[in-house]
Computed example of a mutant assay.
Amino acid sequence: MSIADNEIIELFHLKNKKEEAFRLLVDKYKEKLYWHIRKIVLSHEDSNDILQNTFVKIWQGLKEFRYESGLYTWMYRIATNESINFLNEKKRKVYGNSGEITEALENILESDVYFSGDEIQKELQKAVLKLTDRQRLIFNMKYFDDMPYEDIAAILDVAVGTLKATYHNAVKKIEENMRIIDSQF
């Protein structure tokens, strides 16, 4: 039985039910948030670390949650920001430019023992890595998570029209990269 988000929040505000409410929240969303994060950073280990940080931030912010957006949208925004911050920090500390991090992410994808896709899926992921960070994020949320544009707009705080244009451009780039790959075989 799945408990509604508003019921979890109500439980959280009861003095002796905070931990139970948070456990329910984690159980309900940990898998969705993990895969959202994983599509951004690719590494299983990094995804788990970021997921933990995300839930720490959710725990810290839950008492102030005001329903200005849906709970799910709010949590996705935190997970997205944590993932982007992680990649930016990694770029700053480890890699000199975005080309180097793209290459590193491709290497992670190639050596990932948890990747269960076939060659076509791997090539799609490589094509997705060639997108800008913003295009990749929007593409993942729309294509893989099948999120409505309105939810993505709320998470990323951008206009729906901008999202649609960015997604369209991302799809075109992926199609072009996949054609290049196909012509090499």
Results as ranks from 00 to 15, higher is better:
Thr80Gln: 12
Glu19Leu: 02
Asp145Pro: 01
Leu33Gly: 02
Pro148Met: 01
Val128Ile: 12
Ile180Arg: 14
Ile40Arg: 03
Ala127Thr: 04
Lys164His: 00
Asp182Gln: 08
Glu103Gly: 08
Lys173Ser: 12
Asp146Leu: 12
Gln121Val: 03
Lys142Thr: 12
Gly161Tyr: 09
Trp35Cys: 01
Glu20Cys: 02
Tyr114Ala: 12
Ile3Asp: 00
Lys18Ile: 01
Lys32Ile: 00
Ile174Asn: 03
Leu131His: 05
Leu24Ser: 05
Asn81Ile: 08
Glu106Thr: 05
Ala153Cys: 05
Asp27Ala: 10
Ala79Glu: 11
Glu19His: 08
Asn16Thr: 03
Lys142Gln: 07
Leu109Asn: 01
Glu45Gly: 03
Trp59Val: 09
Glu106Arg: 04
Val171Cys: 02
Lys122Leu: 11
Lys91Gln: 11
Val128Arg: 00
Met141His: 07
Trp35Phe: 10
Glu20Asn: 09
Ala104Asp: 04
Asn6Glu: 12
Gly117Ile: 10
Ile174Ser: 01
Trp35Ile: 00
Met141Arg: 07
Gln52Arg: 02
Ile8Leu: 02
Ile181Ser: 11
Asn48Leu: 06
Asp27Trp: 07
Asp46Ala: 14
Asn48Asp: 10
Gln135Val: 09
Trp59Asp: 08
Ile101Glu: 06
Ser83Pro: 03
Glu7Leu: 07
Lys63Ser: 14
Ala104Ile: 01
Thr73Asp: 13
Tyr143Glu: 15
Glu110Arg: 13
Lys172Ala: 07
Lys15Arg: 07
Tyr167Trp: 00
Gln60Thr: 13
Ala127Asn: 03
Glu68Asp: 15
Gly70Ala: 11
Phe55Lys: 05
Asp5Ile: 05
Asn140Val: 08
Asn48Cys: 03
Arg134Glu: 15
Phe139His: 11
Val171Lys: 02
Tyr114Ile: 09
Ala154Pro: 06
Ile155Met: 13
Ile181Ala: 13
Gly96Ile: 04
Ala4Glu: 09
Tyr114Arg: 13
Lys32Val: 03
Thr162Cys: 05
Val113Gln: 15
Arg179His: 09
Tyr67Met: 09
Lys18Asn: 03
Leu24Tyr: 08
Glu103Asn: 11
Lys130Arg: 13
Asp46Gln: 05
Asn140Met: 11
Val128His: 01
Gln121Trp: 07
Ala154Val: 15
Trp35His: 06
Lys172Tyr: 02
Ile101Ser: 13
Leu156Glu: 14
Tyr167Cys: 00
Tyr76Cys: 15
Glu103Val: 03
Ile78His: 04
Ala127Cys: 14
Glu106Ala: 06
Asp182Tyr: 14
